[in-house]
Design a protein around this nucleic acid. Structure first.
Lengths: 157, 157
DNA sequence: ACCTGTTGGTTCGAACCTGAACAACCTGTG
DNA sequence: CACAGGTTGTTCAGGTTCGAACCAACAGGT
């Protein structure tokens, strides 16, 4: 009984484990809430919203599929699926690329711009409510720094 | 042209948007890497590992399904699925609960303990590498604080 | 022009997750 | 005891995700 604590395997110390588990919990619930809000208010999944948002941030509201996949954080096949969904509902259109026969360019339709204009405020409000408003100014910058640090580390591979 | 910037809809300011998108990116890639490492090294999905870990942290290495679902951050039906998978591979066993006829208790088998002992160090090393080692001590505590703040906010509903 | 290696996007299969519907069971109130 | 209302866990259908395999098209060297 003396040599091993009864708490089971713990290869991270107390603090580290708590931080990691806290992060996992936050990440899970944040995703759930965002997903739910978008679905209810705009009929979009989070990935779909992300696609619209990334397109809207690109010049001309259009991007090649691969670039879009990178920006919207999904796999190539995942993006094919999502764009197909968005095309069904008329929010995105696909056209072929002139300079590269293989290329496909996804671009926002007028309805896509419209949908985004409608749904972005609600989405932003939720992000603000759940994520930003809970933090003091100091906490926010510290958090942003930490995220940036982890991001660089992840990128370096 | 003058009144609206060409950057598309942006209902969060520069800083806030960058933090949110940074978080999304980090969260996505962190999940991917963890998932991949566990799959490669232990043949487990992250949810499955989570189940084993939570069970191992519980007294006797066993928990009722509902408690386990709460701890492992999945829905009830998701847990049923995962436990079924883990049962197939012999890492978890189910037994019925004496005090409550409806209840099912999931408990780690010896193979389950063994698998966890084998895989935890690799998992911990990755978490350390991607998540913890990228942060200075200050950044770490600031991050942990921020996560805790968000967590409380999410819980308050 | 012709290989060779690389890239762009889609398709396919399998795994996964979720919410809703369900049956079995508990609980407490009359 | 009976019965209404809540809980427990599973099942089911539907949508979603990923990676591997694939074909078409580019690019560079010979």
């Amino acid at each position: 009984m003396a040599e091993t604590p009864t708490t089971g395997p713990r290869w991270l110390n107390e603090e580290e484990l708590a931080a990691w588990e806290g992060y996992l919990e936050v990440s899970t619930f944040l995703n759930r809430r965002v997903e739910q809000q978008l679905k209810d208010d705009a009929g979009l999944s989070h990935p779909q919203y992300e696609v619209l948002a990334r397109l809207s941030a690109a010049p001309g509201g259009e991007l090649r599929m691969t670039e879009l996949a990178g920006a919207a954080l999904t796999s190539k096949s995942g993006l094919t699926y999502q764009v197909a969904q968005l095309e069904k509902t008329g929010l995105v259109r696909r056209r072929s690329c002139e300079s590269d026969e293989r290329g496909i360019i996804a671009c926002l339709t007028e309805a896509g711009w419209q949908k985004l204009r409608e749904s972005a405020p609600g989405h932003a409000a939720l992000v603000r409510d759940l994520f930003l408003d809970g933090l003091t100014g100091e906490q926010f910058t510290a958090f942003a720094d930490a995220v940036e640090a982890i991001r660089l580390r992840l990128r370096a591979e």
